[in-house]
Write a protein that binds this DNA or RNA. Structure first.
Length: 857
RNA sequence: GGGCGAGUGGCGGAAUGGCAGACGCGCCGGCCUUAGGAGCCGGUGCCGCGAAAGCGGCGUGGAGGUUCGACCCCUCUCUCGCCUACCA
């Protein structure tokens, strides 16, 4: 290494800057990055039996082309966590890969007339290079690229496994359809105006035959987060998304009429079976299969018009906040199973086809939506639940509260029962007659995975005129995407026109058949990639079961909270499906989850290339170095908070690193600007100073260790700055160069190493040269231990309050008893003056002597 | 409409029942410099009194409450951000 050290030639030089070499990140950082790569320092030995394993996963990036400051914000603290754990002797696995399928590649391809694969792969090359400039310790040997046939063939393989297990199925139903992206899963439709999560276009409904995964099987299990250390808001969001409701399913029969024989079963789901006697009409969703059958001939024109209008509904009133309830009567009645009453049937779009049974019994007295509808169309409102004394009171809105002592009214034989008992009794009675049962409904839907796009995993299915739906045999996998694509300048899936891809012999009968041209939702790629990291080259199976058994679930996952009900839910569902087809033992993928915040652009919006508000870190790295950028991102604020990007203040952390550099290279130097340079603070002896320094260093170590463990990087860095400031105060004094000084310097470097890996490695190596010791990387050092004896104090200063206001401070021995503290406080002149002869009514010695409060009334 | 989160100096933020404002930016003063958008030292919540040391008052969106003591816990309320959207 370099031979220069500042201590050899000291104070005569007039300009201190001429004396020591300046910190030049631009030359230091690439040199160490190359050295680490050369030594393979971060290649993980997945088979090491001795060390405790630590699987640290960070959400893999989409290869949009450029790494921006937001990527750094996610990755560099994650890297610090990895380095911190390595210094604790753990075998850390920190892989990286690319989420390489998806629409932006296709859009770029159409726009620039290039192949999506070429576009994606060249972006990945660029991003690999940029990622390396961070100094992050990724194990590049484990890299996964999802657009690689060696990866996506296993998506196909999983699909076939799930198909065999009954977890995948094909169904024709109204699906959410985006004009650009084709089919969307329910959670990929956002907002009141129902726009596409990816492109923002308005989403329509279309009837299509599509592939689904049966994730609703897992609804209850997904509500169970026991054993997971996940942030509460994410658990809440997932719980709300799954949306479990308990209630009853009740069977109404269609009443006979001139146009219908009656008897058709109309099932409704309700969470309020206790209000069944209050049902005064019934509402079917526009998609309900019995709408057409039950519509009276004289109502047909109006109903048809309404159904057509409902299909376009989102366009009509996309911005209206309180949507008017609309609907039309279909000219048939239903029979209420509890009292035989005939109630009219309506079709209205406030009832959703996809939730519950797509039909409701309307109880306007006790449901706000039903109330609004009844008022608008002049339908009867009958109160059936009332709090004591309210029985006769007129309703001016739906009564939905749950007041104590509520009882059923107007409910036939159940009148007078407490409401909750009444509900149970009604369901029980219906059940005995085969007209109802207790039921649970979920908001969660099955996962619609078909996408009408080229750039994704082909769904491995063949349609044969004679044999129907035929799975592609495992041996024929992967079904490869053709390399040459011709978009004809449109977004239509080019696979539909690719005769070579389309035409295939049926695996069963050998006759001519056609391939499925839909591809899979790219969230499938991200639902298992961390298992593949453990064996990216494995060819005979998707995962290495021994390694997966040993290394997963992932110990720590870091990434953004925006995937709360998408990726993070799909990942849990997929692992459960893998478990159920016998591939993994566990049912949960990630033990501990941390959601870092998001860095927003200067416009306050989420950074994205399409918005054009990304911040390129390359300029900052060129000017200050990667360590400064890393440290600045960690210092900005709490990691889970994020915030708008502003480089204001980056000079502060850069100055800090320069000061650390100076402390190492020029401990004895003195600054001309300091009038007290070279002198100990007034009244402090050399021994005091040395003991104080040692104490400060060990207290810092204690606190910094806790901050790393809790991912509190901002306060961690603040404490290191404080220690550096303390050291700087003693620079050039008799303390500099003492054993205590040396220990403090050593601790400072070790504590800083995970966050600022390059400068600490450089300074560490120079320190070793100076001491004549052989080189060992600082990143291979063991995390130091706090010396408890160094952090104990002989005295302590206790704040003294009078009636809760700070008035004085008193210094007592560290082991002073409460009585001694009390006596010391009362002996203070200032306290005597404030008390003015009065005796305190009460003396609170709080927190084991942390504070004293005198109460005077 | 519902859910989650957050409101603290000029700014980023610290302190989760015990000295509010750590650390950093910015600003002010000084040193050093041919020079400084470099470096170093000191100061810096607001208001008042004081030459100063210092003293006093106010202060964590607002209003109440619990407590010896509240940025922190409770109730109500306002503002902002994110998520969600008629879920029977």
């Amino acid at each position: 290494m370099t031979e220069t050290t500042g201590t050899n030639h000291i104070a005569e030089t007039p300009d201190p800057r001429a004396r020591i070499e300046r910190y030049a990140a631009a030359s230091v950082e690439p040199r160490w990055q190359a050295r680490w790569a050369e030594l393979g320092m971060y290649r993980t030995d997945l088979h090491d039996p001795d060390r405790k394993k630590f699987y640290l996963l960070t959400m893999y990036p989409y290869p949009s082309g450029d790494i921006h400051i937001g990527h750094w914000y996610i990755i560099t603290p994650t890297d610090a966590i990895a380095r911190f754990h390595r210094m604790h002797g753990e075998n850390v696995f920190l892989p990286i890969g690319f989420d390489a399928f998806g629409l932006p590649a296709e859009n770029a391809a159409i726009k620039n007339n290039i192949n999506p694969r070429d576009w994606t792969m060249s972006n990945i090359d660029n991003m690999r290079r940029q990622l390396r400039t961070m100094g992050a310790t990724f194990d590049w040997e484990a890299e996964v690229v999802t657009a690689d046939p060696d990866y996506y063939r296993w998506n196909q393989w999983f699909f076939l496994q799930f198909l065999r297990a009954g977890l995948a199925y094909r169904k024709t139903s109204p699906v959410d359809w985006c004009p650009n992206d084709g089919t969307l899963a329910r959670e990929q439709v956002e907002g009141a105006d129902r726009h596409c999560w990816r492109c923002g276009a308005r989403v329509e409904k279309r009837d299509l035959a599509q592939w689904y995964l049966k994730v609703t099987n897992y609804a209850d299990e997904l509500l169970d987060f026991s054993g997971l250390q996940w942030p509460e808001p994410i658990k809440t969001q997932q719980t709300n998304w799954i949306g479990r409701s308990e209630g009853g399913e009740i069977v109404f029969d269609a009443a006979p009429s001139e146009h219908h024989a009656g008897g058709a079963e109309l099932r409704v789901f309700t969470t309020r079976p206790d209000t069944l006697f209050g049902a005064t009409f019934m509402v079917l969703a526009p998609e309900h299969p019995l709408v057409r059958e039950l519509t009276a001939p004289d109502r047909k024109a109006e109903v048809d018009a309404y159904l057509a209008q409902a299909a376009n509904r989102t366009e009509i009133d996309r911005l209206s906040t309180d949507r008017e309830k609309t609907g039309v009567a279909i000219g048939s009645d239903a029979i209420n199973p509890v009292n035989g009453e005939r109630i009219p049937i309506f079709v209205a779009d406030y009832v959703l086809g996809g939730y519950g049974t797509g039909a409701i019994m309307a109880v306007p007295a006790h449901d706000e939506r039903d109330y609004a509808f009844a008022i608008r169309y002049g339908l009867p409102i009958r109160r059936v639940v009332a709090a004591p004394g309210d029985e006769e009171r007129e309703l001016d809105s739906a009564y939905v509260a749950h007041a104590a002592g509520e009882r059923l009214v107007n409910s036939g034989p159940h009148t007078g029962l407490p409401a909750d008992e009444g509900g149970v009794a009604i369901v029980g009675e219906l059940e005995s007659r085969g007209k109802g049962r207790a039921a649970v409904t979920y908001r969660l839907r099955d996962w619609l995975i078909s996408r009408q796009r080229y750039w994704g995993t082909p769904i491995p299915v063949i349609y044969c005129p004679t044999d129907g739906i035929v799975p592609v045999p495992d041996d024929d996998l992967p079904v490869r995407l053709p390399d040459t694509v011709d978009y004809h300048g449109s977004g239509e899936n080019p696979l539909n026109r690719d005769e070579a891809f389309l035409n295939v012999a049926c695996p069963v009968c050998g006759g001519p058949a056609r391939r499925e041209t839909d591809t899979m939702d790219t969230f499938i790629d991200s639902s298992w990639y961390w298992y593949r990291y453990l064996s990216p080259e494995k060819s005979g199976s998707p995962i290495d079961r021994a390694l997966v058994g040993e290394w997963t679930p992932v110990d720590q996952y870091t990434g953004g909270a925006e995937h709360a009900v998408m990726h993070l839910l799909y990942a849990r569902e997929w692992t459960k499906m893998m478990r159920d087809v016998g591939l993994v033992e566990q049912g949960e993928p990630f033990r501990r989850l941390f959601n870092q915040g998001q860095i927003l652009g200067l416009d306050g919006e989420r950074m994205s290339k399409s918005r054009g508000n990304t911040v390129d870190p390359d300029d900052l790295v060129a000017r200050y170095g990667a360590d400064t950028v890393r440290l600045f991102l960690m210092f900005m604020g709490p990691w889970d908070q994020g915030g708008p990007w502003s480089p204001t203040g980056i000079g502060g952390v850069h100055r800090f690193l320069n000061r650390v550099w100076t402390l190492l290279l020029d401990a004895s130097g003195r600054e001309p600007g300091d009038p007290d340079a070279g002198m100990l603070p007034a009244g402090e002896s050399d021994a005091d100073a040395r003991a104080g320094l040692r104490s400060a260093a060990h207290k810092t170590l204690r606190d910094v260790t806790a901050d790393y463990e809790a991912f509190r990087f901002n306060t961690m860095i603040a404490k290191l700055m404080e220690l550096a400031n303390t050291l700087f105060r003693y620079r050039g004094t008799s303390v500099a160069g003492s054993a205590e000084w040396d220990e403090a310097i050593r601790l400072l470097l070790l504590m800083l190493a995970p966050a600022a890996p390059h400068i600490t490695e450089e300074l560490w190596s120079r320190r070793l040269v100076e001491r004549g010791e052989p080189w060992v990387s600082i990143h291979a050092q063991t995390w130091p231990e706090v010396d408890p004896s160094a952090v104990v104090e002989s005295t302590r200063e206790i704040p003294v309050q009078v009636n809760g206001k700070l008035r004085d401070k008193v210094v007592v021995a560290a082991d002073a008893t409460p009585a001694e503290i009390e006596a010391a406080v009362l002996a203070r002149d200032k306290i005597k003056a404030i008390l003015d002869g009065r005796a305190p009514d009460r003396i609170v010695v709080a927190g084991g002597g942390k504070l004293v409060n005198l109460v005077v009334r």
